[in-house]
Simulated assay, not measured.
Amino acid sequence: MLAAGCAPAEEKPVNEPETEQSTPSEKPAVEEETGPVLDASYFNELKEVDGVQVIQNPENMMVLVNKEFALPSDYTPPDLVRPNVQFSFGDQDIEKSYMRKEAAAALETLFKGAEEDGLFLFAVSGYRSYDRQEEILAAGAAASSEEEALKSIAPPGMSEHQSGLAMDISSESNGFELNQSFEATEEGKWLKDHAHEYGFILRYPKGMEDVTQYIYEPWHFRYIGKEAAAMIHEKGWTLEDYFNEMKPAE
């Protein structure tokens, strides 16, 4: 099965901006009598375009991207950098080796944390452009059918990879593959248990397919910041559940 994170190596380099590394920003949720409240800036601002709900604030670090809410077709994160981590494809400077600055810094810390516990992670696929997502979906549809492909491949604009906040991760023990066997590896187990400590969530958990509208992907991790990630991990939520529970601060 072609997984959402899989992509051939023939990709264009992304120019790294000459900017200083940012410090992760945290605006904690506040517990009020009516329930947990989150700064309104973290909620999607939407505009309907040709029947699609298009996100107008895509640089929001907690942007909710799924089959209901799409990123603009011309959106490219302005602060893409290449994290200093091991990649499954080595030192190739290609599109999928990039992430947004804050997420990249957190990924570096995550990989170091795993290494301190004797485990070695490998980044496989990060940022992906709208056009690249179109190519991947077309290839998946040609291999089976579009209906089958859409179970594991996001439509263009509806992939978290375009946000620059997600990274597919694997290990040498799993042959650097992106598949559900990764959950049984020591690296996959470690990520499931510890990724939230670094601000990442397992974005498409097992048993939550009806909520996320995607198959279980034990390799796909999304950066949202430590506080939100800790809450989601503790409560066993998806990102969709999180925003259903949170209320925007007035």
Results as ranks from 00 to 15, higher is better:
R222P: 05
P155E: 15
L80F: 06
E45C: 05
D131F: 10
S163T: 10
L107S: 02
E209P: 02
Y214N: 11
I153S: 10
Q133C: 15
G51C: 06
V65R: 03
K47I: 00
P78C: 07
V85N: 00
A142N: 10
F89E: 06
S145P: 02
N57V: 05
E217A: 10
M231C: 10
M1N: 12
E16W: 05
Y223L: 10
P155M: 13
K67N: 14
S163L: 05
Q213C: 09
V54L: 03
Q56W: 02
P77S: 07
D79M: 05
A138V: 13
R82S: 01
L202M: 10
A7N: 12
P78I: 07
S129H: 11
S125V: 05
D210N: 09
S145C: 03
E245I: 12
F200G: 01
P8T: 02
P58L: 04
F122P: 03
V85M: 03
V49E: 10
A230G: 06
F120Q: 15
H220F: 08
E45Y: 07
M208L: 10
E108A: 01
A195L: 04
A139V: 14
Q56M: 08
S22K: 15
F182L: 04
E108I: 02
E32T: 14
L165G: 07
G126T: 01
S41E: 15
G90K: 02
S171E: 00
M231H: 10
T34C: 09
V54S: 02
A3L: 14
Y198W: 02
E217L: 06
E209R: 02
L2Y: 13
W219F: 09
N244G: 15
K47L: 04
E147I: 12
Y127V: 04
S159H: 11
K12V: 12
A4M: 13
S41C: 12
A228N: 09
D74K: 10
H194D: 05
L2Q: 12
N174Q: 03
L71A: 08
L38M: 15
V30R: 15
E250Q: 12
E209H: 02
P17F: 10
K189F: 09
K27A: 15
K206T: 09
K47M: 04
V52E: 11
S25A: 15
A166W: 06
F87I: 00
L178V: 03
N174R: 00
E148P: 01
E45Q: 14
E217F: 04
S173I: 03
A3Y: 13
A114S: 04
L46R: 01
F111G: 04
Y204H: 12
S41K: 15
A7G: 09
K226G: 07
A114D: 00
G199N: 03
L2C: 10
Q53Y: 08
P205D: 08
E160N: 15
E234P: 03
F111L: 04
K206R: 13
E147L: 13
G207F: 08
L121W: 00
L64F: 06
